[in-house]
């Protein structure tokens, strides 16, 4: 296969310049994503400072082992997608396909654990809102409300992360099939790099969510 067969858009001199532009564009997007999540991290900082005891009580309802396994799944996914770029350079498109599919499967497993956790919390009436039930809520109203704030932040932050995961899984699996059936897979170098960066970013967000919610 011709290694220089990638299509270069008219505004670029060569494929290397196009690749550099794609990288810079993606990093700028990721910087804005940091700020997108940033508002919630700032809210977490304020409420954790104000209600540290309530946060500790709330976190007792989360399974640490589950959070640890979920982190492990994401890290494995990150490794596979990083390896994909290496094997792509060596034109092993079949391995790139299977690496991407494995990454998507690991992502789906991650979401399964997460949604099971949601199901468990909802079953125990710990979803914020009218149905939220906390035994101490009746005697000391604000104490119960502060635990509810912990769960508001938990569902908002992990929910936003899960939304990013769903987008990531769709992109990774879509790219895998596109690459498999493309007549010229070499031109998918930029999408592979950019989607890889997105996946690693989502991984980093979870790396912070894990200690902030599970290890209090």
């Amino acid at each position: 296969m011709n290694r220089t067969s990638s299509i270069v858009a008219m505004q670029f001199d060569d494929s290397e310049q196009q690749h550099s532009a794609a990288l810079l564009g993606m990093w700028i997007f990721l910087a804005t994503e940091v700020l997108f999540f940033g508002g919630l991290f700032v809210a977490y900082t304020v409420y954790r400072y104000e209600y540290s005891d309530a946060f500790a009580e709330g976190s007792e309802h989360l399974a640490i082992w589950s959070g640890a396994v979920m982190t492990g799944l994401l890290l494995m996914g990150s490794l596979l997608i990083a390896l994909s770029e290496n094997v792509f350079e060596r034109d092993h498109m079949h391995r790139v396909f299977w690496n991407l599919i494995s990454t998507a499967v690991l992502g789906i497993l991650f979401l399964s654990f997460e949604f099971y956790e949601y199901h468990d919390l909802i079953k125990h009436q710990l979803f914020p809102g009218a149905a939220f039930h906390w035994p101490e809520k009746q005697s000391t109203p604000l104490s119960g409300r502060s635990v509810e704030i912990y769960f508001v932040l938990f569902f908002c932050m992990t929910g936003l992360h899960a939304l990013h995961m769903i987008i990531g899984i769709s992109l990774v699996s879509g790219l895998a099939f596109y690459l498999r059936y493309s007549k010229n897979p070499r031109r998918l170098k930029n999408p592979l790099t950019v989607i890889g960066l997105y996946w690693h970013f989502v991984d980093i967000i979870w790396i912070f969510l894990f200690p902030l919610f599970y290890l209090i």
Binding site: L24, W27, L30, V34, V42, V46
Partner: peptide
Amino acid sequence: VLRLTAAVGILWLCFAILGIISDYT
């Protein structure tokens, strides 16, 4: 340029968190 872009994203978040911590404490 890539390192700078990554650092800027993290730096703004650090400013926001340090600002809010210094206010509350």
